[in-house]
Computed example of a mutant assay.
Amino acid sequence: MKENTALKNTLKKQLLPRHIRMIAIGGMIGTGIFKGSADTIGLAGPSVIFSYLFAGLLLLIVMGALAEMAIVYPSHNMKDLIQKAFGRRFSFVTGATYCFMWLTVCVIEVIAAGSFLQYWFSSIPLWILCLICSIVLILINATSVKSFGEIEFWFAGIKIFVIIAFILLGVSILFGIIPSNSPSSEYLHNYSNFVPNGWKAVFSTLLVVIFSYGGSELIGLTITETKDAEKVLPGVVKGVMWRVVLFYTLPIFIICGLIPWDKIDANASPFVQVFEIAGLQGASHVMNFILLTAVLSAANSGIYGCTRMLHSLSQSGDAPKSLSYVNKQGVPIYSLGFSVLFLLMGTYIVYLYPE
């Protein structure tokens, strides 16, 4: 009987290397680059590239250490590793805060997804669109972890495809392969224009930049559901880090090369502005779809992160024991139910206060 109960509380190792790679990349590439880059460029100009490189270096150090610990303790997730280093109390505070953070983010992302859908379906009330998004995300997370990994793989794939297409398009415009009305990029080589607000402004953007890289820590929660994690993780971490740094720095370099940093509209996506320079019609529709994908991907990953952290807290006795129950599909179903409750509360708030 005890053996059967233990089996029910065990997560299934169904995630493949490509799933983890895309979960990490998808978690880090979101509205932070598609929309938030307008804010960071507005603060520091083209020199904000150094902020992304510096934050990327910090991220590489942290994630590299995580990969090394996963080799030594292959059956431990992020919270378990924190407990080994700092004790149970610290790991509980970290785990509980992490759950609250993701639950809050999930609600915000679902509301954002509903607002993006209203761009096309303006006659439908926002709360109904939020409810539809919530139901879709709940169904995705109620399936096996392998199905979740597969869906997140394609969510992230869409974002990566757009960034690669953006880089190729931008390079073509900069080198005159595609004609456009963009201003000359010569000002990039002028020090006063490259660092227009001084180095202090570069460091002031680090808060936004590091927040943009948030989601990379999800790798630390996939350890217990990854086949041969101790062999897979080091290679995945190294590959993910340099890809993410390139996917952030190259688009920003292109944006600053095509649009003077002080002419970038803070209320719009710089990506849309570059697409319009290239003469692409319907750029706003394309970007709206990408932003919708980005927020749904973030909410999807957030629900996963919260349910797995609740499951881990329950197993260590820091949360109700029922939250550690895992169904036949390998999903902590009661932990997922707790997350669902927050999503529905968020939808209800939108119903009461649609503005």
Rank of each mutant, 00 (worst) to 15 (best):
C106H: 02
F121H: 05
Y119S: 13
I124K: 07
F116T: 00
A112V: 10
L103T: 03
M101H: 10
V136M: 01
I128Q: 07
G114S: 03
S115I: 03
F116Y: 15
A142Y: 13
S122F: 05
V105C: 07
I108A: 15
V145C: 07
V105G: 01
L137C: 00
W120N: 07
I140V: 15
L117G: 00
I140Q: 04
Y119I: 10
I135N: 04
V107W: 03
C133Q: 00
F100V: 13
L117W: 07
C99Y: 12
T104V: 14
V145D: 06
A112K: 07
K146Y: 10
I108F: 09
L126S: 08
V110M: 07
V107S: 14
I128V: 14
Q118T: 11
C106F: 04
I135D: 04
V136R: 01
I128S: 09
L126H: 14
L139N: 04
C130H: 06
P125Q: 04
C99G: 00
G114V: 05
F121S: 08
L139V: 11
C130T: 06
T104K: 09
S134L: 06
T143V: 00
L126E: 12
L137T: 02
E109W: 03
G114C: 01
A113P: 03
S115V: 02
G114H: 09
Q118W: 02
S122A: 12
S123H: 11
S144Q: 11
A113E: 09
A112C: 01
C106R: 10
I132G: 02
V107P: 08
L126I: 11
V107Y: 06
F121L: 12
L103E: 07
I140N: 01
I124D: 03
A112H: 07
I111A: 12
S134N: 08
S115L: 13
C130Y: 00
L139H: 09
I111K: 01
C133G: 10
I135A: 13
W120I: 03
I128P: 04
I132W: 00
V145F: 04
I111Y: 05
A113T: 06
L117I: 09
C133E: 08
F100H: 11
W120V: 09
L129C: 06
S123W: 13
K146S: 11
I111H: 01
C130W: 02
I135L: 14
L117R: 03
I132V: 13
F121Y: 11
Y119D: 00
I124L: 13
L139I: 12
N141E: 12
S144P: 13
I124H: 08
T104C: 12
K146D: 03
V105M: 12
I111S: 12
T143R: 15
M101N: 15
I124Q: 05
I124M: 09
V110G: 04
I138Y: 07
V107F: 08
N141Q: 05
F100P: 09
L103F: 08
L117P: 02
W102T: 06
L131N: 03
T143L: 10
S122L: 05
A113L: 01
W120Y: 10
A112Y: 06
L129R: 03
